[in-house]
């Protein structure tokens, strides 16, 4: 018997965890769907139900902040609750005694919190957006969902679709790898929080992150000043610093990837050392 990883056992564990975690998960997804629909309804209320319905690009402007802020909340809530029950003795004993390896148990956590939560939030957001924007497009197809721009010579140079689907508009063509990495990083932090604290996991993790990033930026800023102030010339005109470089993207990606791996490793060790 392989005592570290066995694909069949891992499958059994996913099924078993779904039985317990699934309910919370589905409820959370349901709530998320509700919140998203509410936002769309409120924002688009006038578009559909005003006396003289009209639509402008601005009416859909709420989507980006909603996606980022609420998406962040969703995946962090899910990941900070996955191992939360290990803080309670009676629940922890049963879980720790399940004949699966610690590695498999941790991997199950990563699967639910990172992969499943991100995927399901994206799906839910996609579906809600599809429904509402389709309605907008069909209602205003002939009127105003396309704006044309003309240049100085009076020629049409560009048409802009005002009612694009969210994922068509924001399809991450440039920073693809980063878009995938950020949720991994965020969930790894909150998953660790759910293992580290015994109670009030979310709030404690959030406060720790705030304090930690505060301290970290303070140190970085001040060491940077100490080391470089008055010693380096930044030439604005020649642009020797281009944040859009492919190298920069790779560096940021690598940085987050390494951090994610570190957080996962600490989490795994933490689970291994969990006592009741």
């Amino acid at each position: 018997m392989n005592n570290t990883f066995n694909i069949q056992r891992f499958g059994l564990l996913l099924k078993r965890q779904w039985l317990e975690f699934g309910k919370i998960f589905l409820i959370t997804v349901g709530v998320a769907l509700g919140v998203i629909i509410t936002f769309y309804t409120f924002s688009l209320w006038d578009v559909f139900f005003a006396e003289r319905p009209s639509f402008s690009q601005r009416d859909l402007g709420f989507r980006e902040p909603l996606f980022i802020i609420f998406g962040f909340l969703f995946i962090t809530v899910i990941s900070s609750s996955y191992f939360a029950h290990l803080g309670q003795k009676p629940k922890a004993i049963i879980d720790l005694m399940i004949p699966a390896s610690t590695f498999e148990k941790f991997l199950t956590g990563v699967f639910f919190t990172t992969i499943l939560s991100v995927a399901s939030f994206t799906l839910v957001f996609y579906l809600a957006d599809l429904a509402f924007v389709s309605k907008v497009r069909s209602s205003f197809a002939t009127v105003s969902n396309v704006t044309s721009y003309t240049d100085a010579r009076g020629q049409v140079t560009e048409t802009v679709d005002n009612a694009m689907y969210f994922f068509t508009k924001n399809f991450p063509e440039k920073f693809k790898s980063l878009f995938i990495m950020v949720p991994f990083f965020v969930t790894s932090v909150f998953l660790l929080g759910s293992l580290y604290f015994n109670r009030f996991h979310y709030i404690k993790t959030a406060i720790s992150v705030i304090i930690f990033s505060g301290v970290w930026s303070f140190i970085l800023y001040n060491t940077g000043r100490l080391l470089f102030e008055g010693k380096i010339m930044i030439e604005h005109d020649r642009q020797n610093f281009k944040p859009t470089d492919a190298g920069a993207e790779l560096a940021i990606f690598a940085f987050f990837a390494v951090l994610t791996l570190i957080f996962w490793t600490i989490g795994y060790i933490r689970l291994k050392e969990k006592q009741v």
Binding site: M1, N3, N6, R9, H85, Q88, K89, P90, K91, I93, I94, M97, I98, P99, A100, S101, E104
Partner: peptide
């Protein structure tokens, strides 16, 4: 897992 599958542990408090 090889050992855990051979242990039956009945705790006093459980969930």
């Amino acid at each position: 897992p090889a050992l855990l599958s051979q242990i039956c542990f009945i705790p006093e408090e459980f969930y």
